[in-house]
């Protein structure tokens, strides 16, 4: 079901609007504190700002909140899964998953039947009778996912579903989600570009409580138009001219000291700038350069590069490979 959620929450400096079309997965991409969770809480009805508008569906829409209307969270066909699985203690795994169907008024036996089915789909059928408090983080998050799916939500909201998991468990969870989310309408908040790249159809980038840009996954992640998005996906972003951008990958940019540049060289694909910061990425040094046209980033081999380049403030010349795509602003 289509979700349209707009809200202004001055207490948290958030003002944004997100929409997701029926059957699609929207990634809400941004760092901590950018307002992702706030938007999900408004959609779920856990936060009730004075100024918000939440509707579900198209023609036969369900009005969740506007200036006068208010649908409490338990009446919204929306389920929120947070990074903390929050399984109910004192209940078996099976009864945790059966909680939603039970709350919807189904009998104990029928609810457990449904729960068993969902546990099977998330690959947790073998722990159905375990006590919720005995599970590992990865297992618990699987069960929490089954519990959320068992409510058959019209829209599933995932708030940083991998943030509390270790690398292995997060990987398994990502693979699992890529199969179970296929036909659902989903909004997933994440600070990890990989989640958006692997799971989303559409991406909304949030920055400082507002939407920085939005579009299809390929458009937003492949052709960033906001310096913040470019930084998230680990690319530089410069204006080639007034109406054209380019976002080269770190491997497509080479650096040398500005002083070493032959005086005659005024090639179009060379930008002058100063080194802003240097990060370690495995065995390469990633150098971020401020230029007049935007930021560029280059991966260099610290073993062979002139060390003066690795010093913030160094004046450098950046050369971008000729095959890098340019696109309209």
């Amino acid at each position: 079901m289509r979700l349209d959620c707009s809200a202004s929450v001055p207490e948290r400096a958030v003002a944004a609007r997100i929409t997701v079309e029926s059957g699609r997965t929207l990634a809400l991409l941004g760092p901590n504190g950018s307002g992702k969770s706030t938007m999900l809480e408004v959609a779920a009805g856990l936060l009730r700002p004075a100024d918000a508008h939440v509707t579900l569906g198209g023609a036969d829409r369900v009005l969740c909140q506007d200036a006068t209307a208010w649908l409490p969270p338990h009446r919204r066909p929306v389920t929120l899964l947070t990074q903390d699985p929050s399984l109910f203690a004192g209940m078996s795994v099976l009864d945790n998953v059966a909680f939603g169907p039970r709350a919807a008024g189904h009998g104990k036996r029928a609810s457990r039947e449904v729960a068993r089915d969902w546990l099977d789909r998330v690959g947790a059928a073998d722990i159905a009778n375990a006590h919720a408090s005995t599970l590992s983080g990865g297992q618990a998050q699987r069960v929490a996912l089954a519990r959320a799916l068992a409510t058959r939500p019209a829209v599933l909201l995932l708030d940083e579903p991998f943030a509390a998991l270790d690398v292995d468990a997060a990987g398994h969870m990502r693979t699992l989600l890529s199969t179970v989310l296929a036909d659902l309408t989903v909004v997933m908040s994440t600070h990890d570009v990989l989640d958006a790249a692997m799971l989303a159809d559409d991406v909304v980038v949030m920055h400082d409580g507002a939407v920085a840009e939005r579009g299809t996954r390929a458009e937003v992640l492949g052709r960033p138009r906001h310096s913040f998005t470019a930084r998230l996906v680990g690319r530089g972003l410069v204006r080639v001219d007034a109406s054209t951008w380019t976002a080269p990958r770190p491997s497509q940019v080479s650096l040398r000291l500005a002083a070493d540049l032959p005086e005659s060289s005024t090639a179009e694909d060379t930008w002058h700038g100063t080194v802003a910061r240097v990060e370690g990425h495995d065995d390469v040094a990633r150098v971020w350069v401020d230029t007049d046209a935007g930021d560029l980033v280059a991966d260099v081999d610290p073993l062979i590069i002139d060390r003066r380049i690795l010093t913030p403030g160094a004046a450098v010349a950046c050369t971008v490979a000729s095959d890098v795509e340019t696109y309209p602003a």
Binding site: H74, T79, S86
Partner: peptide, 13 residues
């Protein structure tokens, strides 16, 4: 926290 989770799962007060 757990009350919020229960509410989004459809459980009334």
């Amino acid at each position: 926290r757990f009350e919020a989770v229960a509410a989004t799962l459809g459980a009334g007060p």
